[in-house]
Design a binder for these strands. Structure first.
Lengths: 71, 71
DNA sequence: TATATTTTTATTGTTTTTCGATAAATTTAT
DNA sequence: ATAAATTTATCGAAAAACAATAAAAATATA
């Protein structure tokens, strides 16, 4: 499965959802959905904006976890 | 911008579009579009399938390239 | 060169999903 | 308690994935 580690990166940057929402330009609600692994896909433009806002790489946000599912 | 490095990974694995298309379960045409940076988004299910098929990580496929555009 | 294989491009249609806008509920901090 | 931050939930619209298909173009091979 693909894991979203947005929360980790936000913590590292001490950035709140509000701030990130502003910088990325997507609504608070939708960003929350993405952060909590409720989204089924992502636009590259959004991923790009997130990486730019958090000054990080794709792999800081998205992770392929072999097998794994539970929770 | 977000770069797709599918071609690099396919080369490393000596895997053709045909083979990858089979394993991933999306059509040849659409995989080609993705490979050539014509897609605007990607479903996590697809990204997952690609990582599994190529036995690689997300960062082997997707890369955030600061700035950059041209070409 | 001729032929086969692989890849790219294009089109149409269906289904899915993002994302905005909004509001309420919930959680966490003050 | 109160305020702030986050999550959850609808609804709708616009966008995009992806299938199916076919044809064109590029590449490899005999």
């Amino acid at each position: 499965m693909i894991k979203i580690n947005l929360d980790v990166m936000m913590a590292k940057r001490k950035m709140s959802l509000n701030e990130l929402s502003d910088k990325v330009g997507i609504t608070l609600a939708n960003l929350s959905i993405l952060k909590n692994n409720k989204a089924k896909a992502i636009r590259f433009s959004t991923l790009d904006a997130i990486c730019r806002a958090l000054e990080c790489r794709v792999e800081d946000i998205l992770e392929y976890a072999e097998g794994e599912q539970e929770e």
